[in-house]
Structures are given as structure tokens and as C-alpha cells.
Design a binder for these strands. Structure first.
Lengths: 135, 135
DNA sequence: CCGGTAACAAGAATCAATACTATTTAAGCA
DNA sequence: TGCTTAAATAGTATTGATTCTTGTTACCGG
């Protein structure tokens, strides 16, 4: 009684788009990116497939930034920095939570931890320059 | 040339509502909570003041969960667990990132880290029971 | 080739969040 | 206390990301 997932060219293109960029795209970004090669692509299809990829763990959500959900196709352990000013997301490879912390939390609180994320917020190099005064 | 911030009974009530609960409320929750005592409260006022509190660091955002932004009036260092099933947020007091990691990231990447958060995702005790099969 | 169904496009609907405008009210001062 | 004025608000309209609906297309097994 498995729900089959058929092959689809659009779905493949959507996944490829996410996995081939480091910019942590939104649904709209993916849509605009694929539009030229897939003129009949629908925004709804992008949303549907992003949800699908997220559900089966193929991609992760970085969270909602300035009103739009942002995704990440890089599953290697790393953290993110999010600029409070421009909304840019920067990868922080090698930056991770304490080892075993997820398991410790699961045990201590009776939870089933499936994912753990460490996120930093502040100003990116570009925005630091444009902010003459502090904070 | 400072922009004065006048006293406002509604604003005080909104802050009190957030600080007096452990449920990490949304704007809508605060609105419904205060409605009985403040029949003429406007949802816009709730949003405006939540943004104000967030801007001056009186409250923090937990992030957007199931389409609604959730807030936290507890500024003590702690982390959160978010249930992927019911959206409940559970406090994890004492659970923190590695000490000094924010400063290390700032230095290493030339960023200005203002805030750092560690978040766990998975199933809460209630939802574990209702999920007979894994994940 | 045919029937069943996943995937899809297009557009409508939803709804959290924001913007707008007229009104109310806090705060300083005579 | 009464006056002034700009912040704060209520109420309503609007926005915009996301989801849903409907009818169509295309893949797959038989």
C-alpha cells in the first residue's frame, strides 16, 4: 500500500536547481530560475515538490526569512548565519552543536529528536559597512 | 532627535501576556487572550507592539511555525524543541550552544553575530504515542 | 491500445501580516 | 486644570506567500 512517486522531469529540475546553488533559495527563486527552460512550470508545482522533498528529507528548511521560506539542498552538517538586514543566508561549514546533544535532549525530555539546527543572526560583511552606527 | 515611546495600557498588557506564559504565543494567541479584558483591542496593535518588543530585545522570535510567527518572553539562555506534528514549542533550559561559538564565528567569517539559537525538531511525547509507525 | 492514477497548469481561495486613515490619548506646559 | 501635538490605536482594506480546486496531461502496467 505504498504511495508511488513517479518520475517527473519538473521534479528533477526543481531538485537540481536547489542542489546546484549555495544561495538557500525560496520557492519563488526556484520558479524564476526554471521558467526559461520550463515555460509551462507552475508555481504550485514548485511548492508541492519542495514540500515533498522536505517530507522525505531530501532538502531542509532554513526557516522563513522576510516572509519567504528558504530551503537548503546541502545535507552535510553545517550551520547558518542569517543577516538581519538583507536576509542573506551564509553557510558555516564545520560549525555544529555539541556532539550527542540531540540524544541527550531526547533522553532527558522524552522527545524524539529528528533534526537539530544551530543558527546565528546578525549583520553580514556587506551590511556592516552600510551601518555607520552600532547595531 | 529621539523618537519617544509613550506609555500605553495596551502595550503593557501585550508584554505581560507574553511574559506570563510558557506557551510561546503567536500574535493571534495574544489577541484572543487579551480580547476579554480589552474588547476594543486591534490585531494591528498586537503586531505593531510585538515588532517593537522584538526590535528592542524585550522578546525573541522562536520562528514561523505552521504559518504563524511565535514569540518568547523568556530571555534566559535556553533552547527550544519544536514538534513537527502539533507545532508545540517546548523549552529546554540549560541546553545551549558551545560556549564562545558566537564569537568564534564572528571572527572567522567577518560577521557581526547578535544572536544565536539552537533548535531541535521532532516529535513531542504526546505525538509519539499517536504515531504507531516510525516517523 | 486502454484504464487507472500521479503529476501537472491555471487560477481561485486562504489567511497571516501589513498599510492606511480617522480617532483617541499620553505627556509636557502654561 | 485646560491646551497642544504627536504617538498610539481601532477598524478596515490590502498585500502576498502559500494552499487548494478543477480539469488536463502523461506515464505505466496489462
Amino acid at each position: 500500500m505504498e504511495r508511488a512517486t513517479r518520475y517527473s522531469k519538473k521534479r528533477e529540475a526543481i531538485l537540481a536547481a536547489i542542489q546546484s546553488t549555495r544561495c538557500h533559495p525560496s520557492a519563488e527563486w526556484v520558479y524564476q530560475r526554471l521558467k526559461p527552460d520550463h515555460p509551462d512550470l507552475s508555481l504550485g508545482t514548485v511548492y508541492r515538490n519542495l514540500a515533498l522533498f522536505q517530507a522525505n528529507g531530501t532538502i531542509h528548511s532554513v526557516g522563513v526569512i522576510q516572509g519567504q521560506e528558504r530551503f537548503d539542498g546541502d545535507l552535510s552538517p553545517h550551520s547558518h548565519f542569517i543577516c538581519n538586514c538583507c536576509g542573506q543566508v551564509i553557510d558555516l561549514p564545520g560549525v555544529t552543536p555539541k556532539a550527542g546533544q540531540d540524544r541527550a535532549v531526547s533522553r532527558q525530555y522524552g522527545l524524539k529528536v529528528q533534526h537539530c539546527e544551530l543558527t546565528f543572526h546578525g549583520l553580514c560583511p556587506d551590511c556592516i559597512q552600510q551601518e555607520p552606527f552600532d547595531l
